[in-house]
Structures are given as structure tokens and as C-alpha cells.
């Protein structure tokens, strides 16, 4: 016993010093963790909890919330809510069509993966749409699609319309076919918004693939060439397998992008015409904070559904990361 006391005396190590490798990580971690927990982790559970209530967001004078427990009522209501199903269907449409960004990005990357003069600048300019806010992209395309004075409208006029000038000098157009008003047509409006959303997303996938192509092993390509592989075969059997990490990230960010689609819908159609372009993200916002009073409970139920859909992808991503961690270290 005294021997231990002696060592403790001689090395003079305090509890803190002895356990510094246990304590130190927590000191570094706690600010970020606590902050992240307050704003991100707890609200997730709070939202799920709130989806079992009916609440207009108000509090009584004594500070208690006016929320009323309704159990699964909100979910039962969702089941028969036509707008919810339209939104879900559109989300699916976004997911499927947004995936086009991956092959399209790859095609542009292959097209640009050369070393001619000025190529660096071209690559950055191709990437441009991703840097711009989606609000601006939405406005640009909203105007692009405008049948009266947008680009589509102007092209249409040039093709199908005749300009006549009346006595007062005002030009009027007489058209053999009225120009399409993409964003006011319930059938095609969603496609119009998705097309606009694809523009920056393709740019993102392109940059992922350009970086990936930079790191494709040159010796394997050469070996493939010697074996007579070229064109599509080379791409499919030799290049694409090496681009797998880039493809994985491209798919992940595209899925997330598709499910997060909000800005463009808010800017271009606000869910209309007749709710035909709604997606869960926008419908949730519209429901929770509407002009007719807040519906936090119902909104939270929509958010929970969206969260569960996303959870599949998050779990898959984490599982992949876990495999990498096990393999790597």
C-alpha cells in the first residue's frame, strides 16, 4: 500500500492528469455537441412528439402550451388528404427524375475532361449554376418559361405568330397556336420545376465526376487499351468501377437535393396551380405556417413522414460509412 502511495507522491499525478486522455475529448467536444443537440437533435424528437398533438403554436397566459393530445389523428387525416398524396407523388417524381443529374453530370464531365488551353476556366463556368442560389435559379427559369415575354414565349412567337401593327402603332400578335404556359399547367408544371432544379444538380454531379476522373488510374486505362477496350466498354468495365466513390456521393447528394426541394417551388409556383406542384417539404411549410393560422401538429406529421423517407437514405449512408471505417482503421 505504501508503495502505491509513494509512486503517487513521486510522480505527483492528480486525477485530472491521469485521466487527461479521457477528459480532454469531452472538453473539445461539448460545445459543438451541446449546441448541435439543442438546435438539431432534440427538435427532431420534439417534432415527432408534436405530430401527436393539435396545436396552433400559442401559449396560455401562464406559459403552458395550448396543444391538445390527439394521438394518431393527424396521421389518419393525412391518409385521406388528397394534397398529401399529390405531394408524395411529386416527391417520387422528383426522386426519379432528379437521378438524371447523375448520368448527365458524368456525360458533361467526360466531355470536359481534357487538357486544352482554357479548360480550367470552362470547367468552372460549367459549374456556375451550382453556386447560384436556388431562388435565383427559380426566378431565372420562371422568367424563361414565361409565355408572354420569357425566352420560351419569344421563341414561340418567332415560330408560330404573326406580328400585326395597328393604326396606333401597337404591336399585337396573332398566333396559330397559343404559347405553352408551363408553370400554369397542372400537368406539366412539376416537370418544368424539376428541369430547373436539374440544372444546378447536374453541375454538382459534373464536378464530382471531374474530380473522380482526375484520379482514375492511368495504368489500368492503358492496360484496357492494350486489351482492345474502348469507348463504352472502357467506360463501363474500367472507368466506372473506379468512379464508384464519386457515383455514391453523387447519388446521395441528389437524393437529398430531391427531397429538400423547397426553394424553387416556393419561387416558381408556390405549390400551384391547384396544389399540383406541391412536395412534402413545401406542403409541410404551407400547412404549419399558413395565413389561416398555424397548424403545428399536422405540419409536424407531414415532416415526420418526410423524415422517415429520408431516414432510409441516412441509414444506408451511415452503414456504408461504417463499413469504410471498419475496413480503413
Amino acid at each position: 500500500m505504501s508503495a502505491i502511495d509513494n509512486t503517487r507522491m513521486t510522480t505527483n499525478t492528480s486525477w485530472i492528469a491521469r485521466n487527461k486522455l479521457t477528459i480532454a475529448p469531452w472538453l473539445f467536444l461539448i460545445p459543438a455537441l451541446a449546441y448541435f443537440a439543442i438546435y438539431v437533435v432534440f427538435p427532431i424528437f420534439e417534432s415527432i412528439w408534436l405530430s401527436f398533438f393539435e396545436w396552433n403554436g400559442l401559449y396560455r397566459a401562464d406559459g403552458t402550451s395550448t396543444a391538445v393530445w390527439v394521438g394518431f389523428d393527424n396521421y389518419v387525416k393525412l391518409w385521406s388528404d388528397q394534397k398529401f398524396w399529390t405531394s408524395l407523388k411529386n416527391n417520387l417524381l422528383w426522386l426519379i427524375l432528379f437521378m438524371l443529374a447523375v448520368p448527365a453530370g458524368l456525360m458533361i464531365a467526360l466531355f470536359l475532361n481534357q487538357e486544352t488551353p482554357g479548360m480550367r476556366l470552362y470547367k468552372s463556368l460549367f459549374f456556375f449554376p451550382f453556386v447560384i442560389s436556388q431562388v435565383v435559379v427559380g426566378l431565372i427559369f420562371g422568367w424563361f418559361y414565361n409565355p408572354d415575354f420569357g425566352v420560351i414565349g419569344s421563341v414561340w412567337k418567332a415560330l408560330y405568330c404573326e406580328e400585326t401593327v395597328n393604326l396606333l402603332g401597337n404591336a399585337t400578335f396573332r398566333c396559330s397556336q397559343t404559347p405553352p404556359d408551363i408553370l400554369s399547367d397542372p400537368v406539366i408544371a412539376t416537370y418544368g420545376i424539376i428541369a430547373a432544379g436539374l440544372w444546378p444538380q447536374i453541375a454538382y454531379c459534373m464536378i464530382l465526376y471531374l474530380t473522380g476522373l482526375n484520379n482514375v488510374a492511368a495504368d489500368q486505362i492503358e492496360a484496357g487499351r492494350l486489351d482492345g477496350a474502348k469507348g463504352w466498354k472502357m467506360l463501363w468495365y474500367i472507368v466506372l468501377p473506379q468512379l464508384r466513390p464519386a457515383t455514391f456521393i453523387a447519388v446521395v447528394v441528389t437524393v437529398i437535393g430531391a427531397l429538400r426541394s423547397f426553394d424553387m417551388i416556393a419561387i416558381m409556383t408556390q405549390g400551384g396551380p391547384f396544389g399540383s406542384t406541391n412536395v412534402l417539404a413545401y406542403y409541410m411549410y404551407e400547412t404549419a405556417i399558413s395565413e389561416y393560422g398555424e397548424r403545428y401538429g399536422y405540419g409536424s406529421a407531414i415532416a415526420t413522414v418526410l423524415f422517415i423517407i429520408m431516414l432510409f437514405y441516412i441509414s444506408y449512408f451511415l452503414w456504408r460509412m461504417y463499413q469504410d471505417e471498419k475496413g480503413g482503421h
Binding site: 438546435y39 438539431v40 427532431i44 417534432s47 423547397f262 409541410m284 404549419a288 409536424s300 423524415f307 429520408m310
Partner: peptide
């Protein structure tokens, strides 16, 4: 990765 809407309210 979570959707913003689950944090919104």
C-alpha cells in the same frame, strides 16, 4: 442530412 422541415416547428 435531415430534412429542414423536421426541425422547423
Amino acid at each position: 442530412f435531415v430534412p429542414y422541415q423536421i426541425l422547423m416547428v
